[in-house]
Write a protein that binds this DNA or RNA. Structure first.
Length: 120
DNA sequence: CGTGTGACTCAGT
DNA sequence: GACTGAGCCACAC
């Protein structure tokens, strides 16, 4: 859904409890921890990062990911959609296939089996 | 410091 | 099974 012009949200003030600065730093670590042949959803990464509702923020972090050592291609959507990969979503698809992940159409196959939520 | 926005997700139709 | 609407969060400008 691209056409989603909504209000930017009224000022929200919820102290991030554990003063988590550089939230993306945590995301990078998690994504890097994803084993080969497995994938994690943005929501899962967000949850592991400490923000179960920040799936969007995770996507943003990925978009601006500065660290090439982060296998962002292992991060997919919750419905099995890869999501995007800059301007080359097919590159992401290729990488996943190269990792040994089976795809169907543009969605992950056996998604529930390869889905890595940080625990096994 | 305030606003916009997006590589999301869930629920309803 | 697909599309739309609405909610939520952190980051970049």
């Amino acid at each position: 859904m691209k056409a989603n012009g909504k209000a930017p949200g009224t000022s929200k003030k919820k102290t991030r409890g554990a003063g988590v600065t550089s939230f993306r730093r945590r995301v990078f670590s998690i994504v890097r921890a994803i084993p080969v042949g497995r994938v994690a959803t943005y929501g899962d990464v967000a949850q592991l990062a400490g923000a179960p509702r920040a799936a969007r923020a995770v996507g943003n972090v990925m978009r601006t990911c500065d660290d090439p050592s982060v296998p962002c291609h292992r991060v997919t959507g919750a419905n099995g959609a890869l999501g995007g990969y800059g301007s080359s979503p097919l590159l992401k698809r290729q990488l996943l296939i190269a990792e040994g992940i089976t795809l169907r159409g543009g969605r992950l196959r056996e998604f529930a089996k390869i889905r890595w939520t940080g625990r096994r």
